[in-house]
C-alpha cells in the first residue's frame, strides 16, 4: 500500500534511533572490552603477545565490516545455530570496534613517557599497579578525544547492520521508503537524524582535543 510520507513516518524514524543507539552502546561495550585486551597485548613486554595484538588489528582493519556481519549472520548457521541479527551484529561490531579502540588506546598508553613506568617500578609497584595507578589515569585523558571521535564512526557504521535485517534507523528508512515511495525525502530525513546524533559528538571531540592541547602547554 502506498501512502504519503507524513509526520508519523518521521516519528517512526526517530523511534528507530533507539536501536541505533542500543547497537552503538553494545558495540562500544563489547568493542571496549576487546579493545582493552588489544591495547594491553600491543604494549605487552612479551613479543609473542604483541604479535597476536598486531595480527588482530591488521586482520580486522584490513577486512570490511560488512564481511564480518555476513560471516556471523549467514556463515555461523553451519554450526547449526540460528543466529539472530542481534547476536551477529553484537559480535561483528565488538570485533570491529575492538581493533580501532585498541589502536587508539595503545597510542595513548605509549604516549606516556617511559620514565613514568620506571618511576613506578622504582617505587616497588608491580606492572599491574603501574598501569592501574600511574599509566592508565594519564592515558585516559589523552584517549578521550579520539575515543569520542571513534564513537561517531561507530554510530555511522551501525547503519550497516540494516543489511542483515537489523531494524535500526537506516533499515527503518528502507521500510518507510517501501511504503511511501519517497526515497529522497526519507533518506534525507534519515541523514539529518544521523547528523543530529553525530555532529554534537564531533564538536565535543574537537573541543576536548583543543582543551587538551592548551592544557599540555
Amino acid at each position: 500500500m502506498i501512502r504519503e510520507f507524513a509526520l508519523i513516518d518521521v516519528l517512526y524514524l526517530v523511534a528507530a534511533m533507539r536501536w541505533t543507539l542500543a547497537l552503538t552502546a553494545i558495540a562500544f561495550i563489547g568493542g571496549g572490552l576487546v579493545g582493552l585486551a588489544v591495547a594491553l597485548l600491543r604494549v605487552s613486554p612479551l613479543a609473542p603477545l604483541r604479535w597476536i595484538g598486531t595480527i588482530y588489528v591488521l586482520a580486522v582493519q584490513g577486512t570490511p565490516l560488512l564481511a564480518w556481519l555476513f560471516v556471523f549472520f549467514f556463515g555461523l548457521s553451519i554450526l547449526g545455530i540460528e543466529v539472530s541479527p542481534w547476536i551477529a551484529a553484537a559480535a561483528s561490531y565488538s570485533i570491529y570496534a575492538g581493533a580501532f579502540l585498541g589502536e587508539i588506546w595503545r597510542g595513548a598508553l605509549q604516549a606516556i613517557p617511559r620514565t613514568q613506568w620506571e618511576a613506578g617500578s622504582s617505587l616497588g609497584l608491580s606492572l599491574a599497579q603501574q598501569l592501574r595507578y600511574i599509566i592508565v589515569p594519564q592515558a585516559t585523558r589523552l584517549a578521550i578525544p579520539p575515543t569520542v571521535g571513534f564513537l561517531v564512526q561507530l554510530i555511522k557504521n551501525t547503519s550497516l547492520a540494516a543489511v542483515i535485517g537489523f531494524v535500526e534507523l537506516t533499515r527503518e528508512g528502507q521500510l518507510t521508503t517501501a511504503t511511501t515511495f519517497r526515497p529522497f525525502t526519507v533518506y534525507l530525513t534519515v541523514a539529518a537524524l544521523y547528523f543530529l546524533l553525530c555532529f554534537p559528538l564531533t564538536q565535543a571531540s574537537r573541543r576536548l582535543e583543543r582543551r587538551m592541547l592548551h592544557g599540555a602547554r
Binding site: L160, A162, T170, Y194
Partner: peptide, 8 residues
Amino acid sequence: RNTPLIVQ
C-alpha cells in the same frame, strides 16, 4: 562526515 556512507 556526520552521516553514514550507506545513507549517502
